[in-house]
Nucleic acid binder design. Structure first.
Length: 267
DNA sequence: GTTGAGCGTT
């Protein structure tokens, strides 16, 4: 789908995957492609999307052919304002190049110690010298673009409002500032507390609620059902059961974003 | 129509 016309990774022999985060949900590969293509040969582009809605999850994967180019893209594109958001470009953990990254650095001559994710949201103003790199035409650029375009964008229209008229950074900025770089810590702490834990469960149930109606849609709330409603069969009792048996029966994607603390069911 | 701090597809 998001690939270039092949099932799974195309011809990844020695490619380097970059993870692009903090992109808007409406930002498409087409929008990011020119930005990344300027710094190197993009051999693969993949934007995870929700199967239910089909919308982007807010991050994308760019695969470069060379590490130096990837590194360059990370340095140049990380913190770049795209569609009004500051995207974060960093090396992906998954992929053939992941091992090299974990070692501490890439096999590039870049003196950069680490492409840490602790990048500041306000990158320093840099002059635009993209013209130099952009002049270099890559023969594969057209092919790559055409491939992923016809695969992912054959039905999708790029008619999205890229520029949001209401880009009120005021409320957003405050929230962003308040946000902690690692709230995972907070989450762990909540486990120790009793009250927070209960709230988590409540939220979990609510989250799974939307998945229910699909099934109940068939049965009208009226007494059309042949079998009367028993207290034991009351939806309240059934709800938790179904949640455990088959939350959605779809994809793990939801679990990732839903609630990692689903193990709290034991007690 | 909405959101968000997150690591990938047959």
């Amino acid at each position: 789908m998001s690939h270039f016309g092949r099932s799974g990774p195309p011809d990844i022999r020695d490619t380097y995957s970059l993870l692009v985060l903090n992109i808007t949900f409406r930002t498409s590969a087409d929008d990011l492609f020119p930005l990344f293509d300027r710094y190197g040969k993009v051999v693969d582009i993949f934007i995870p999307r929700d199967r239910r809605t089909g919308d982007s999850r807010g991050f994308a994967f760019f695969r470069y052919k060379y590490a130096d180019e990837a590194q360059k893209a990370v340095e140049r594109l990380d913190g770049k304002n795209v569609d009004g958001r500051y995207i974060m470009v960093q090396f992906a953990k998954y992929g053939p190049n992941a091992e090299r990254i974990q070692r501490g650095r890439i096999t590039t001559s870049s003196p950069k110690p680490k492409a840490g994710r602790s990048r500041s949201r306000s990158p320093p103003p840099r002059h635009r010298n993209s013209s130099d790199n952009r002049d270099r035409e890559y023969g594969r650029r057209g092919s790559v673009r055409d491939r992923y375009e016809r695969d992912e964008y054959r039905d999708k229209d790029r008619d999205y409002h890229r520029r949001s008229p209401s880009q009120s950074p005021s409320p957003r900025r405050e929230r962003s500032r308040t946000r902690s770089p690692r709230r995972v810590r907070s989450r762990s702490t909540s486990i120790l507390s009793d009250e927070p834990r209960r709230r988590s469960r409540s939220r979990s149930l609510e989250s799974r609620s939307p998945a229910r109606p699909a099934r109940r849609n068939q049965t009208p709330r009226r007494s059309l059902s042949p079998r009367p409603r028993s207290p034991a069969q009351s939806p309240a009792a059934r709800s938790p059961d179904r949640a455990n048996m088959s939350p959605n029966g779809k994809h793990r994607s939801d679990s990732r974003s839903a609630s990692p603390l689903n193990s709290d069911a034991e007690h």
